[in-house]
Write a protein that binds this DNA or RNA. Structure first.
Lengths: 312, 312
DNA sequence: CCGATCTGTTTGTCCTGGACAAATAAGCCT
DNA sequence: AGGCTTATTTGTCCAGGACAAACAGATCGG
């Protein structure tokens, strides 16, 4: 049963509210209006834009399409029907490829079953182990949920629910995985993301695999200023600095950040970068790990190198 | 030991980078330049602003002072020495009031002792119980860390570390507190924050207390659009919708959001609002809980009312 | 002497319309 | 087809003006 809002009720949003809600900068909203004639908001008595709820909804559709690769000029003036049609045709990730685990999760999300979701995630972790779960299954689940959202199959609150439960399960598994004798674990790994990167799940998966591999993880969470990451690396006497870059980060920005970091932490500290960021390139004394499954071998290699350095 | 950056190295930031780094809108940065003559960035060949690192550092000082109650007109433009002097004189929260727990945490943070921090937090939870910890001690710790940061006693990465470890400890305690028979717990509480509110710790503390009181919590995390919160409340068949508002939310915005929500969820759902937001006012069929310790009594009252409704 | 109402100032956000560089697509030549 | 150059698209920046909401200070009644 859907509670329908009264039709005469017009909800109007300021440009700042639309910016937050749709993730489109104020400048972008204004320039679209100028160029494509959409959105075309009402104005208040002081000529400030007031966006009706239906235009905001259309903007959300457009955003999905652009995130999926469409170009603004081709979608920003089209009718809602056209947009819905395009959404239907895009990136339906082959259901066979998605795998039964992802299918199961999507089904649970459609039923709004918070408890079942958590129990299912825990069962998956127990079935294959935390490392395999974090390296192999979790990325597929996240991709499947993201695709379902961009197709319009899932609402925002269902994605929020998934993120929340996934985080809870992974955090508690990480907690359980690090037994006693924390301080003696090596390497000491400092994890964070740069200020432009708000995506926390990649960091969390990396932390899980590092922990399983016997490393000591110190995570600063997301969006730490570059200078602060460098300062923390020194303060915690880290052996490895691990950075996560999602696909929203332009490659050039990632490269700049890595160079900056390399210049500001001790030479003995290794810098490892990873994540879905396209075009992430290794630089001088900066390694790029291709995929989460590359973490364990890298840790083992680090230990061998460290042992060698001590013995000589 | 501090690794000093080479003095000739001039780091320049674009206006967008400063916006992210300092949390000051581009428009604000431009209007300050026009009105107060500070900051006064360099320009690139296309006349775009390039902020030197030292001006950005000063902007951070200014931001602290404004957050502490100073007015922009009085501090933007003053020398670094003046600003440092003002910082020294402001809101030193009486060390006796801060309490020994907070003192201990601050001391650990100064030592960058990640492991000790977690162990200490766990010990505190075990000593007084999760409910007392979340309701009484945690808010004091958070306030003390925030004050130390705004005084300049803690760096950003130390605050990040605290937030991360605090979150981990509280989440795992919440996990442990909810035994079997989840589905039978009542009331069913949906937790989230509005899109303008990014503060996650308040929500987490509330979740802890709700869980201890025997409620079933479904958290959507922070920054869920209003319409999505309403949709989720229906989808999860919640008895109570709990919203957290920190002090950064203007009272008018909170009131608007609560009215909007009240209009879009079933009459049988109670709406409870709480948090440090000054001027948060109860409205028609919207309750305001003053402080986290008000949650348990409210849950008990809800159960009595529910039992009464069934028996009649 | 305290607290409320009124008035003047401060301050953040919004506006327009123009400009340009980075990213992307299209054309072209091996 | 694959690499290169040219054209188009697109997001972000700029200046300088405007105004409402937030705030401080003054005035007045209890």
């Amino acid at each position: 049963m859907t509670v329908s809002a009264s039709p005469e009720k017009i909800r109007l949003m300021s440009i700042a509210a639309v910016e937050r809600d749709c993730g489109l900068a104020k400048d972008t909203l204004r320039v679209w209006e100028r160029r494509y004639g959409f959105p075309m908001p009402l104005r208040d008595r002081n000529d400030e834009r007031l966006y009706p709820a239906d235009q905001v909804a259309t903007l959300r559709l457009i955003r999905r399409l652009i995130a999926a690769g469409h170009r603004p000029g081709k979608v920003v003036g089209r009718s809602d029907e056209d947009l819905a049609e395009l959404l239907r045709h895009l990136g339906v990730p082959d259901p066979q490829l998605v795998g039964s685990d992802a299918q199961q999760i999507l089904e649970i999300l459609r039923n709004h079953d918070a408890i079942g979701l958590r129990e299912t995630l825990i069962a998956m972790v127990l079935r294959v182990g935390l490392d395999t779960f974090a390296a192999e299954i979790a990325p597929v689940l996240i991709a499947a949920v993201g695709a379902a959202w961009s197709r319009g199959d899932l609402q925002i609150h269902q994605e929020h629910l998934f993120t929340e439960q996934f985080t809870t399960v992974l955090r508690s598994a990480i907690n359980a995985a690090q037994g006693a004798g924390l301080a003696r674990r090596r390497p000491r790994v400092l994890l964070s993301t740069i200020p432009q990167e708000p995506h926390a799940l990649g960091l969390l998966m990396a932390e899980a695999i590092f922990t399983i591999s016997g490393s000591l993880c110190v995570s600063l969470g997301v969006q730490t200023p570059i200078a602060e990451i460098a300062a923390a690396t020194r303060a915690h006497n880290a052996d490895v600095l691990a950075l996560s870059f999602s696909s929203i980060i332009p490659a050039a920005q990632a490269t700049t950040a890595l160079i900056e970091l390399r210049a500001n932490v001790a030479e003995t500290v290794e810098i490892w970068a990873g994540g879905a960021c396209a075009g992430l390139r290794a630089g001088p004394r900066v390694s790029v790990l291709s995929g989460l499954s590359a973490i364990s071998p890298a840790v083992i290699a680090w230990r061998e190198k460290a042992a060698l350095a001590v013995s000589t």
